[in-house]
Design a protein around this nucleic acid. Structure first.
Lengths: 217, 217
DNA sequence: TCTGTACCGTACCGTACGGTACGGCGTCAA
DNA sequence: TTGACGCCGTACCGTACGGTACGGTACAGA
């Protein structure tokens, strides 16, 4: 096994090309993803595919990891956490997450992971879960707790607070997209949704209650 | 084509047996569902299967319809709608819906619908969407609007209010279950979640604001 | 009793896809 | 120059599954 120079990345550039082909084929339709199709589109041989990724599941797993490594959201500013900065950070989180889950790539990948989760082996669902729902939770919770210590938020259980925020942001968007609802989210709608969710979250958990009627829409 | 006596039901008793077999196989694992397996388990011939349901997609579609016809939630009481009755109705809706989406059957069926939604044909996703997310919306919205007219709730857009309720109830439950998270929801947890979501919903949209701090968990 | 019908069980067909084998080509180091 | 290596392209294999055909049986009506 040769020591390569791209040690910080999990996959070689050529392998990344292949994985991007997988993503593209996945977006075009689940059943278009055959090993032969990947090999042809990526201009590589099936033998190489099997050598690099083991089998079909290995290829899918690598693809999920590759995609996950591409969507790492920015962190929040740890300094001067006032109400405004908190609100900005929450909105940014929400907008980023909505953008991710409404992307065609994410929808396609979640579809294969969900389909796979029914069939026992090669825990794709677990990987997607770890890099999606759980990862965002682990990144957001410190912010929530810092806000609580700063006296900006009021809650007992961080997990409950986070899950509520999650629900307010996502609502029915993900399940509708997964089921094929032609729901299009423009940048403006995403921004508006992120703002609304943040507003509602403040109403529920904010230490200083805003004026009533603020969250009617 | 013989006129049968079960005209109010979409499927004959024998056909319902077959569809229940499909559901059972689906729960046991997506890839266990082959036409041969269905025929063997249901003690019928594949020829009959194809005669009744056309093809594999037809069988799946019929199964989704059959399951949808089994989960029709109870309606709310149209009379004397006070704050208490409204709260009870919302909690009942929430608990019923959480029970449905956390059932193994629902998870399995949503998985096949989602897998299918990626592959163009035989709009299973649309059927599930129509009988799930959209159906519950159409049943809940009249209650919300009646409550608004009774001065119990305050909102501009019924859809927005409903979707918020949807998010508060479901949060991350459905996506986690679909992705294979071993999340178990006991009756007690479901009841608690329904109550919490209803409480939070009242905080956001209730005409009379409850005391602050009620929704901290 | 005869005939038609609906259905079960099973054998069969075609195909598509995962996985393997192999020949050929470019590259690099000795 | 030569040999080893990595990779491309393609041909090939086995199998599993969707879909069809067909013989056998039970039953209903004439």
């Amino acid at each position: 096994m040769e020591v390569t120079t791209y040690s910080e990345t999990e996959f070689s550039p050529r392998q990344q090309e292949v994985l991007d082909v997988v993503l593209a084929l996945l977006v075009e339709g689940r059943d278009g993803l055959t090993m032969t199709a990947v090999a042809r589109r990526a201009s590589c041989s099936k033998e190489t595919l099997y050598k690099w990724f083991g089998d079909r599941d290995g290829l899918l797993t690598a693809t999920v990891r590759w995609q996950a490594s591409k969507v790492r959201a920015g962190n929040w500013d740890r300094q001067h956490l006032d109400a405004h900065a908190l609100s900005e950070s929450l909105e940014a989180f929400a907008a980023n997450w909505l953008t991710v889950i409404s992307s065609r790539t994410s929808v396609a990948l979640n579809r294969v992971a969900i389909a796979d989760a029914g069939s026992g082996k090669s825990d794709l669902g677990g990987i997607v879960l770890a890099n999606g729902r759980l990862a965002i939770g682990e990144r957001l919770k410190p912010l929530l707790e810092a806000a609580r210590e700063a006296g900006l938020l009021l809650f007992d259980d961080t997990e409950v607070a986070f899950r509520t925020f999650f629900g307010l942001v996502g609502r029915d968007v993900q399940i509708r997209l997964l089921l094929g609802d032609p729901l299009a989210m423009s940048r403006a709608e995403i921004a508006a949704d992120a703002a609304r969710a943040t507003r509602q979250f403040f109403t529920l958990f904010g230490a200083a209650k805003p004026a009533p009627g603020t969250n009617r829409n």
